[in-house]
Design a protein around this nucleic acid. Structure first.
Lengths: 237, 237
DNA sequence: GCACACCGAAACATCCGAGGTCTCTGGAGG
DNA sequence: CCTCCAGAGACCTCGGATGTTTCGGTGTGC
């Protein structure tokens, strides 16, 4: 195993064992390199890798620190990973979101405080009557994020955040190509809000399911148009 | 932004744009470094970081390749991230698993083929009458993994795999400390298997819910013994 | 006494070049 | 046809030198 990978494990162990706590500063490069028995170059590779997944935070001119290691921070790194997936797997991601989003919405209906519910309502009102696609999408993301936060589970919230990435593109297409989508989205958001405000978890769950399933169904039909109007390239057999 | 981070984005873009396809080999270090306008040292840091999240695969003496980029591979990297979380957040992870596992089990009851169902049954029978904790745990992991695969959704499967990590320790404790846990686990596994074999998604979902919730409830009581059995974390005030 | 600008130390960022080690490949020999 | 073995190619590791940024102390002027 390359020395760099060993260094990654060593640093990881130092954190997990508690020798390095969140927020702690690491020894300077030269010092840590000598202690781990490798060169600064190789150590820098290890540090850079741990930086990418938000475990370490390097500040030039200052030092290298352990991040807070909070779930939202670490799972944010998953967004980077998810970006690599293209349209062929977006349905799989959406399917997972369809499982998590209703559950999160139901939890939000139970756990959300009145203040947060009020803010959620404000989000709905902020949207202009004829919003641009960009404004609608931004509002949509904030709306769902607020609900995810309201679930009270940071892991669930971060996971949903990451999953929103790949489906965002799909929603853009939808807004652009499907006429009634904008109005329908607003109606469903309002319904979800009402259910949460009334503290009705099952109703909230159902509306969320309907909401996500709508996107999923549309996307499924769009990605497999072969059944609708064949005749393009299907000359075989 | 440091040149290394720029390089990471450049390589990422090369992959996303399709210039580099899964399995493709990258230009040699010196060549790519010159092309991206940085030194080999800095480029190596970028490559190492992308290696950690399984986007690139470097083989000494051969070259650097783009991995298959399959969801299971990329989400496997999340296991590394999850390792950093300790017991204080394990309940949050378990709560997410409690959402996903029943859904996956229900999907498996619909989608699993007869061959896979047979293999699932074999897994149950393989376990000795008085298994060691290690054997039980290994069998448990394989059992749930098989079901996750049976859902037909690789993203869901990988996600559950990653979530199993943090809860594994908890299950070890449970097996060690709670007398009836072993027998109960076997009974519930059998029930889940029967429901899947009968292609009854709702029954399968319910058994899976019961199964995971059992661990969750036990863990919640163990971690917060002070409240006795209030059953909720609502420490409102 | 307080606020601001300056300056030096500390730490990371980047680069370069030199050996070392591993893997793949192709040819010689059996 | 199979096996063995050099050679080339590519990554691995190292050490040092130089540039950049940040932090904190210091001194000045108000």
């Amino acid at each position: 195993m390359p020395v760099t990978d060993v260094a990654i494990d060593k640093i990881k162990d130092m954190i997990i064992s508690g020798e390095l706590a969140p927020g702690d500063r690491l020894p300077k490069e030269a010092e840590l390199a000598q202690r781990l028995g490798l060169s600064r170059s190789s150590l820098r590779e290890a540090v850079k890798a741990l930086c990418l997944i938000r475990v370490l935070d390097v500040r030039q001119g200052d030092g290298t620190y352990v991040t807070s290691l909070e779930p939202n921070l670490l799972l944010d790194a998953m967004t980077f990973v998810v970006d690599f997936h293209r349209d062929d797997t977006v349905l799989d991601f959406l399917a997972v979101r369809r499982i998590l989003e209703p559950a999160a919405t139901a939890l939000a209906a139970v756990h959300m405080g009145e203040d947060d519910i009020t803010e959620l309502g404000i989000l709905l009102d902020e949207l202009a009557d004829a919003p641009t696609i960009e404004a609608l999408l931004a509002n949509d993301l904030r709306f769902h994020r607020k609900i995810a936060e309201g679930s009270g589970n940071p892991v669930l919230c971060s996971l949903l955040d990451s999953l929103s990435g790949p489906t965002t593109r799909a929603r853009i297409w939808r807004g652009l190509t499907q006429e009634g989508a904008v109005a329908r989205t607003r109606e469903q958001h309002a319904a979800i809000y009402e259910a949460i405000a009334a503290h009705e978890p099952e109703l909230a769950r159902s509306w969320a399911t309907v909401h996500v399933a709508g996107v999923e169904q549309w996307l499924r039909n769009t990605l497999t148009p072969s059944v609708a109007d064949a005749g393009s390239d299907a000359a075989a057999s």
